[in-house]
Design a protein around this nucleic acid. Sequence first.
DNA 1: AGGTTTGGTCTGGTGAACAGACCGACCCGT
DNA 2: ACGGGTCGGTCTGTTCACCAGACCAAACCT
Lengths: 189, 189
Amino acid sequence: MNRPTRRYDGGVALGTGYDQQACHLARALEVVGERWTLLILRDCFYGVRRFTDLREHLDISRAVLTDRLDTLIEHGVLIREDSDGHPEYLLTEAGRALWPTIFSLSKWGERHTSGPHPARLFSHATCGTDIDDVGRCHTCGEVPDPEDLVVRPGPGTNAMRRSDRVARALERPHRMLTPITTAAGPITG
Amino acid sequence: MNRPTRRYDGGVALGTGYDQQACHLARALEVVGERWTLLILRDCFYGVRRFTDLREHLDISRAVLTDRLDTLIEHGVLIREDSDGHPEYLLTEAGRALWPTIFSLSKWGERHTSGPHPARLFSHATCGTDIDDVGRCHTCGEVPDPEDLVVRPGPGTNAMRRSDRVARALERPHRMLTPITTAAGPITG
DNA sequence: AGGTTTGGTCTGGTGAACAGACCGACCCGT
DNA sequence: ACGGGTCGGTCTGTTCACCAGACCAAACCT
C-alpha cells in the first residue's frame, strides 16, 4: 500500500534541537516523546490493537492518532497487520522493550501525583505474585517480561470511570499483550 | 517571591484529554511529558543547576526553559534555591524518583535508535562496578540510587561533539547530582 | 562610568493540536 | 439492490505552543 508519510516533511524534522544532543535520550524522545505517544503504547501493552478502540479509550483526535501510529510504525515500534480486513497495530520487539519506561513512569505518577492508590495492579502470570515497584516478582526473583503479566484494576480506579470498550474490558483481569476485543463484538460481559 | 505561573491560564490546562484518563501515567505525563522536560531533568541528574548552563547545553529557547522550570517547580519536581545571588535548580525527592524512567528510556534509545554504542556509562560509586541495563550493580546486587552513580563518557560519544561548559565537564567522570560548575569559573581545564 | 554575565520577559511568525465535518470501503439485514 | 452502520481514515478552520531573536534589569568587574 505504501501510504505516504504524513509528518510535515517540509520543515525541520521533529526534534529541532533534540538532534543536536549526543545523548540517546534525545533520540528516544524523538520517537516516543510526542504528546499521546506513550499513552498509545501503554494501551498497546494492554492489548488494544484497533484504531477505533485507541481513539475512544484515549479521547484523541483521529488526525493525531493517525500521525502517531504512522510515526511509530516508521520507527519500528509498531507494525500494521491486516486481520479481518481491518488493520491491527502490534508492538514489535523494540516496542515491547519500552515497557520498563512506561511502567516506571506510571509508578512515579502513582506516587507523586494525587493519591497513592494504584489504578492498575500487575501480577506475574506464571506464579500469581504481584510485582513490586521496580517490576520484580518476589517469588521468582526476576523481572518478568510484559507478556507474562496480568493487569487488573486497583483501588484507585474508582474515580473518572469511563465506559468505552477498552475501559470495560480492563475491569476484569487481563493478560498483557493479548487482544482486548475480539473482532467487533462487545466484550462478553 | 511568588512568581506568577505562566502557562496559559486561560485555556484548558495542559493535558486536554490526558486528565480524562484514570491512569497515573497520564498525570505523570502532564508533569514531565512536555517537550524538553526530560532532557532538562537528565541534566539536573548530571549536576547542572544553572539557567544558563541548561540553556547552552540543551540549545533551548529562554522562554521555554523558563516555562519548563516553573512547571517543574510548581509540581514539586525541582526547587529553586538562591546561591551566590543566582538561582539554582535542584531535584527534589520526587524529582530524583524519576531516575529509573530517564535511565530506561535512555537505554532504549541506545539500543533501538542508531548505533549500539552507549554515549555515557554509569558505575556504582561505592564499588566501581558498571551497572547493567536495568540499573543493577552486579557486585552489590542492588539498584543504586542516582546519587551513588558516577557518569563517564562511553564509546558512542564521539559524534556531534559540543563545546559548552556542561559538555566539557562531562568529558571526565563525574559524580551524579554533584554540581557540575563551581560558581561561574570555567571547569578546571 | 562602561562592559559583561546572569536570568530572565516580550513579540511576531510558524508549526502542531483540537473539534468536528466529510468520505470511501466494507458488512449486514431485508 | 438498497439503506444503515461501522471502520479507518482525511480535510478544514481555529486555537495553542514553540521558536528565534530583541529587549531588559540587576549584579559584578575593571
